[in-house]
């Protein structure tokens, strides 16, 4: 008698569990796709438009990022939105992802174009297509303690024997330092690969964990110099010394020559209209096009 009742109980429990899991499996499809990332450029369902998947690094504020509401924005993303306005024959869909996936997906053709503060490097020209027109400028420099404010270049930094915060190896900042080291084998910077999420350059430099870190001016401004910046309390302890201004590019899949040409005409137009200067001011706090002639790559 008792045995039977216990068996009944557990059969019911199992029954419910199986049912529950099956239901879950069915509902899940909707649940996931509902929350999955989608940031299509405009809602019009014009069929003859050529669909373009624009990949962006979703965690690289202020260049490209997902805002609090999950929408794509940042300098590079906003430029691409303007490009899309000038090229009505295309329909852009913005897809947020990681840096690794952006590059690999671009090489494989999963995405047609990618933006993430891309610098020009020799290796990348083999796998990707660079357009003729650059998209933006990036002020790159070193975050240092005030007492090291006299260090103005990578050569100074290396000569002083200082330590550098790790950089994610797929980041072109890594390539920049690496290239410097190859060009200056007698005075190299100590370079380490790391993960972008675990390195908080400003904090590390301030507490002395490292002596310096590569940083973009726009980030430093918003983080430390801005009154509302999370690290504004470090404003008197840290300095940012620009060591170069670098052109940044949209990176295309190898088979997208036609699209890249159209992109070039659009970017030319945007540059002529001074639209990019506005965006540079908005996201980087400075019109970097004023120092365009100092950009050497």
């Amino acid at each position: 008698m008792k045995v039977k009742s216990v068996l009944k109980v557990w059969k019911k429990v199992i029954g419910f569990m199986v049912l529950g899991i099956f239901m879950a499996g069915i509902v899940a499809g909707c649940g996931l796709s509902k929350t999955a990332d989608s940031g299509s450029a405009d809602g019009s369902s014009n069929k003859e438009k050529i669909k373009i998947k624009v990949a962006y690094d979703q965690s690289s504020k202020p260049i490209t990022y997902k805002d609090e509401n999950g929408n794509a924005t940042g300098y590079d993303v906003e430029v691409m939105k303007l490009v899309n306005q000038l090229l009505p024959q295309y329909e852009f869909e913005f897809i947020g992802t990681t840096s690794d996936d952006l590059l690999l997906g671009l090489a494989q053709g999963k995405y047609q174009v990618g933006v993430k503060n891309v610098f020009w490097t020799e290796e990348r020209t083999k796998k990707f297509l660079y357009p003729k027109e650059f998209q933006g400028l990036s002020s790159t420099g070193l975050v240092l303690k005030k007492e090291h404010a006299n260090i103005k270049s990578l050569a100074d930094f290396a000569a002083a024997g200082l330590t550098l915060a790790p950089i994610a190896a797929n980041n072109a900042q890594y390539t920049i330092i690496d290239e410097y080291n190859k060009a200056n084998p007698n005075n190299p910077v100590k370079l380490q690969a790391g993960d972008s999420f675990t390195v908080d350059v400003e904090q590390w430099v301030n507490e002395g964990r490292v002596d310096g870190g590569v940083e973009l001016e726009g980030r430093f401004k918003n983080l430390v110099l801005s009154e509302s910046g999370p690290y504004h309390n470090l404003a008197n302890d840290l300095v940012y010394n620009e060591f170069t201004v670098i052109k940044t590019w949209a990176l295309f899949n190898k088979n997208e020559q036609k699209f890249a040409d159209d992109y070039d005409t659009a970017i030319k137009q945007l540059k002529a209209d001074k639209k990019l200067n506005e965006l540079s001011k908005k996201f980087y706090g400075r019109d970097l096009f004023e120092v365009l002639d100092t950009a050497n790559r």
Binding site: S59, K61, Y65, G96, T97, V199, V201, N222, G229
Partner: peptide
């Protein structure tokens, strides 16, 4: 790049410029 709990945490951190 999946945005689950940890993914969202990393987005929040990125939104604070890694601070």
């Amino acid at each position: 790049g999946l945005i689950d709990l940890t993914g969202k945490a990393n987005l929040i951190i990125a939104g604070n410029y890694n601070s």
